[in-house]
Amino acid sequence: MKLQAVSDDEPRLGRLINIGLPYLWLGLFFLLPFVIVLRISLAEPALTQPPYTALWEWVDGMLEIRLNLRNLQLISEDSLYLQALLNSLWVALVGTLGCLVLGYPMAYAIATAPERQRVPLLMLIILPFWTSFLIRVYAWIGILNANGLLNGFLLWLGVIDEPLKILHTQTAVYIGVIYSYLPFMILPLYANLTRLDRTLLEAAADLGCRPWCAFRRITFPLTLPGVIAGSMLVFIPVVGEFVIPDLLGNPGSLMVGQLMWTEFFANKDWPLAASLAIVLLAILVVPFVIMQRLQQENEMN
């Protein structure tokens, strides 16, 4: 009897740990920070350390709660915030599509390369991570400058007569985003493509489906989970990107990450910065849910 109880308990404990750990992780690193940010977003800025007011106070046995909702009002009314949000979503969309268009063929080429070449090829994709992200973005300043590498090369070729103005434009931001996030697209796609059952392609060929048709009807639909995973890994962080637009963009290409920086550093308005973060999170949950749905449907099929 005793023995049975132990063996009965153990899997239950194991299951508890198995299920509990991810929840603990989520609670500690997602929910708790979210609650803290939400709490700050409802406070008022103040000249104290930290620079915002308390939400509740005990005064003579009375609990006084003060919630500041003006921030959400300001964000919805002031076009500056809306435009920055739209611009962020747009940059993320262009960046994701750019990464997909460039990354898919690269992942495909690596996945179909002879076994011995795959690891070195993947190394080449991962290699840039060994240099600081900041330095790699700075390097683009040197490349895109009016007297930088790219313009120097094009002038030398005689393709252009005067330097192209790319640095400090929206184009430079696209370039920086696509460059920086390309590996995040390639790696999940590669993982997906290597698992692809090649006999399906042979079967398709036997049934008279040409390569393009086979790609369209078999390869691409089967790698859709990889496309979705890669797109999410690119889209979500790019929306909140700060470094790339700040170094490569101009004040006109304002993204929401920069606005948050301004509110946080220049205005010392932590509550507004926190409100922006909450709005951004709410906006990001929508594509996340849509993609989740797509993935589920895909798996059911």
Binding site: D78, P251, A266, N267
Partner: peptide
């Protein structure tokens, strides 16, 4: 200060 700073962000972004 905050009003001034927001005015400033808008001026810089050319809006």
């Amino acid at each position: 200060i905050r009003n001034l700073n927001r005015l400033w962000t808008r001026l810089k972004s050319g809006r």
